[in-house]
Amino acid sequence: MAWPVKRYGFAAAIIAGLGLMAAVVAGKSLLDGGERAVAASAAGPQAKGPGGEAPSVRAEPARRHTFSDAVQAIGTAQARESIVITPKVADTIRAIRFESGQRVRRGAVLVELASVEQQADVAEARAAREAAERELVRYRDLFEQGFLPRARLDSAQAAFDAADARLQAGLSRIADRTIRAPFAGVTGLRTASPGQYARPGDSIGTLDDISLIKLDFDVAETHLARLQPGVAIVARTAAFPDLSFAGEIENVDSRVDAQTRTVRVRALLPNREERLRPGMLMTVEVRSNPREALAAPENAIIDEADGAYVFVAAPRGGAHVATRTRVQTGLRVGGMVEITAGVSEGQLVVVEGVQRVRPNQPVRLIDESERPSGQPAASSGLRGRS
């Protein structure tokens, strides 16, 4: 019959077509493989490694930095000196000699209370003292001439002393009605007016010396050995998030709180620009035990179950080879890691491209100018302090 012959002829045509397609695909694969081989050969031995083409990485020499043991705390800023301006006696305010926010010198008159009656008392006491002084001089002359007994001279001396004491008391009462600045500083908001009746304890204003800020904070007693006068601190406040304020511990309280098991610490912060204000909440970092040590950026460290590693770009045959090196690490502060062993000063540590590197693989070192646009820089603090 004719139909089986036609069927077999159609199947043969299909098989022949599939074979032709397979031959074309195989030929193209061989051609592409040859081109890659030629390109790899032209790139040279420095562009290949056990893991393929050499990855581009950035490396920086290991350098020494200052590390310190940090203790964190929260404290409240206080003025170096601070008072509430209030009268010593109850009377009417005659004059206020300052404005809100005014800078005053030590001894400047701030407030004057009414003192008409006291002035009259002083005038009377001064007149009585002058009369007692004249009588004392006359009695002393008579005594020296022998016309006056010693008892009369002593009485005249006592009368003069009493008159002088009454005068000094009157002057003191007037002084109590004049409020002077006990130290140089800046006045706060004025809270009273002339003609107002003021009593002891009533606030007329405030006076603060903020050229130096006292910062009190509590630290757990377990850190007591690290807290010594002169130890450096760094404080920050939410009001100035981009600024840090350096100071040092002035003193440590002589007692540990039995309830909280903390000790009160006082530090001093220079405040020449007067950014800090009394009452501010500040975070404190006590930096004790400062020391010099090698450091590497945190993203250069490979943490594994058996320890930490870095890739060191070691020169070999005119190229650089990534050597996987085990290191011992210490503190991790501000994106930097303290390296206590495993790397020598000056060795090139891979800080970017770590995930693309394999052990003993050639690498191509790049600098900042070769980084693709938009790619963030490594958190490298090899030129800073920790």
Rank of each mutant, 00 (worst) to 15 (best):
R80N: 15
D306C: 05
A26I: 08
R316F: 11
S172L: 15
T262Y: 03
Q72H: 04
V310Q: 01
L30G: 11
E292N: 12
R166Y: 05
L276D: 09
T283L: 07
A62V: 15
R103K: 15
G170S: 09
A90T: 15
A238M: 05
D303V: 15
V327W: 05
A220D: 14
D367F: 02
L167P: 04
A13R: 07
A159I: 07
V263H: 05
A308G: 02
S211Q: 02
D91C: 00
V111D: 05
R385K: 10
L31D: 08
D164A: 14
P149C: 02
E338W: 04
R287Y: 08
A73I: 11
G188R: 00
R383W: 03
D32K: 08
P194D: 08
T260D: 05
R105F: 03
Q46F: 09
R140M: 11
A198L: 07
G170Y: 12
D253H: 08
I204V: 10
G49Q: 09
V109L: 00
E338P: 09
D242S: 13
R326C: 04
P362A: 09
Y8S: 13
P359H: 00
I233E: 07
R199N: 15
A47L: 11
W3A: 10
A300L: 02
G44R: 07
V327C: 08
T325R: 15
Q375H: 05
E298D: 12
D121I: 10
G107E: 12
A59R: 02
Q157G: 08
V57W: 01
S244P: 00
A181I: 12
I74E: 12
Q46T: 05
L113Y: 01
G170N: 08
A12D: 08
A232H: 11
T222M: 03
G51E: 06
